[in-house]
């Protein structure tokens, strides 16, 4: 099969009822918190903006990059969403994107939706979001430090998602952990590199032009943020 994109979407039937149920409850709980945060922090009239940004995440998930041996990986975007929207709003947006993929594109089983939202959205968005937020006061206030943190966390978010997927499949009794974990972590170590490279460049482009749109941390004036040549001209160059 030429160039099939590797994805973590778990289909129907791979998870036991218990695992799917627990993952579903965790996902519902995180989405409920996300809804409360949105209620508190977000003017309801700004919802169209969230919708358009969900479409953005959906679209950038189609960015494929080569991994190894003719396979390709694609961006998951949980860390990117967390940096741009904050961890909880990112959970909401990722849940909407993944639910749409399940309902409209039959990608990822409806019975495994909770697990997919957990693995590919919530775990990454919360882990990356909160660790970057916690580390931010300790980091030097420079562009490089923020981008390094974003890079490391986006790699880690992919690995954690892959590990969670393997664990869920193993607990369900579908595929033993000794088989999936090394394979999943091996492939996703490479996918994570692509994810980190794309996320870092994307955040750096936003940082250069509209640093006020980074919601995760208050970036303020950063050392070393001399205008990067590309982003400002990117629109003209790339269209």
């Amino acid at each position: 099969m030429p160039d099939l994109p590797l994805a973590l979407h778990i289909p129907d039937g791979f998870l036991s009822g218990g695992v799917a149920g627990v993952a579903g409850l965790l996902a519902v709980a995180a989405v409920a918190v996300g809804l409360r945060v949105a209620d508190r922090e977000l003017d309801e009239a700004r919802v169209p903006l969230l919708g358009v940004l969900a479409a953005f995440i959906f679209a950038v998930q189609m960015l494929n990059f080569p991994v190894a041996g003719g396979t390709s990986g694609h961006l998951l975007g949980a860390t990117l969403a967390a940096v741009l929207l904050g961890p909880w709003i990112a959970c909401l947006v990722m849940a909407v994107v993944l639910a749409t993929q399940a309902f409209v594109f039959a990608d990822g089983g409806i019975s495994a939706l909770g697990a997919n939202v957990l693995n590919m959205g919530i775990l990454g968005a919360l882990l990356a979001g909160y660790l970057i937020r916690l580390a931010w006061p300790l980091l030097p206030k420079s562009r490089t430090a923020l981008l390094a943190a974003v890079g490391v966390m986006s790699w880690l978010a992919v690995m954690v998602g892959a590990a969670a997927t393997s664990a869920e499949l193993a607990i369900s009794g579908t595929i033993p952990l000794s088989t999936t974990l090394p394979a999943m972590l091996g492939v996703h170590a490479l996918i994570g590199i692509g994810e980190a490279v794309i996320t870092v460049t994307a955040v750096s482009a936003v940082l250069a032009v509209r640093p006020d749109l980074i919601s995760l941390v208050d970036v303020g004036p950063l050392a070393g943020s001399e205008p990067a040549p590309l982003p400002a001209r990117a629109e003209g160059v790339l269209s």
């Binding site: 794309i198 460049t201 482009a205 509209r210 990117a234 790339l238």
Partner: peptide
């Protein structure tokens, strides 16, 4: 390069 595309897309 795809990251720069994503950044420009976001803006």
């Amino acid at each position: 390069a795809m990251g720069r595309v994503a950044g420009a897309m976001f803006l």
